[in-house]
């Protein structure tokens, strides 16, 4: 603790001495301040993924397809009739793919539905015959360096108890980043 005591000056000389003492005390007091501090800088990060897109390249092709014992089978790896999608996102980002394996196709000409069992295959490169069968409903996958992943869609349908008509349905795939 610094004490500054000031006595009334009796002469001009004493007054100057007192002022000098005050000035010294002020300087001395300032000098007592410690640099007792510390500083840290930290980074704040956020990785932003681009918006996911699913683009249909081609639909499943049933035109004049061969029916074997009332069953149509389109192999997603080998058949050129397989449908094709490309999913676009962030390069090398992980994503989760989820799809409904069985969907009903509706008769557009009247009553009746067909249960269609989808089978899909996927690949990080645009090459169907090396695609991997994605036989689980939910899969964790990885985009390629261009932020793309390719899907081929096939399936099996049994036409043995089906009303004549034209049938339509959807294939639904859900994709999200993980």
């Amino acid at each position: 603790m610094t004490t500054v005591s000031v006595s009334p000056p009796t002469t001009q000389s004493n007054m100057l001495k007192s002022l000098f003492a005050i000035l010294l005390s002020v300087i001395a007091t300032t000098g007592l301040y410690g640099q007792n501090g510390n500083a840290v800088t930290i980074s704040v990060n956020a990785t932003i993924n681009s918006t996911l897109e699913t683009i249909t390249i081609q639909a499943i092709d049933f035109d004049e397809i061969e029916i074997d014992n009332s069953v149509i089978n389109i192999d997603p790896v080998m058949s050129p009739r397989a449908g094709k999608l490309v999913i676009r996102g962030s390069a090398n980002a992980e994503f989760r793919l989820d799809y409904l394996r069985e969907r009903d196709l509706s008769n557009t000409d009247g009553p009746g539905t067909i249960a269609f069992n989808y089978i899909i295959a996927g690949n990080r490169i645009d090459e169907q015959d090396t695609a991997e069968l994605l036989d689980q409903d939910v899969r964790d996958l990885l985009f390629n360096e261009d932020g793309e992943f390719f899907i081929w869609v096939g399936g099996i349908v049994n036409l043995s108890e089906v009303e004549p008509g034209s049938y339509e349905g959807e294939f639904t795939v859900e994709v999200e980043y993980i």
Binding site: L32, G34, N36, V40, N45, T47, I48, N49, S50
Partner: peptide, 27 residues
């Protein structure tokens, strides 16, 4: 605290950065 030679130490307990974990999508 301004008088004397007290020390004070500021250190990170968390590792790395303050990270906004993904997935974070534009928009």
């Amino acid at each position: 605290g301004r008088y004397g030679t007290y020390t004070i130490t500021l250190e990170n307990i968390s590792m790395g950065d303050l990270e906004f974990d993904g997935p974070i999508v534009a928009g």
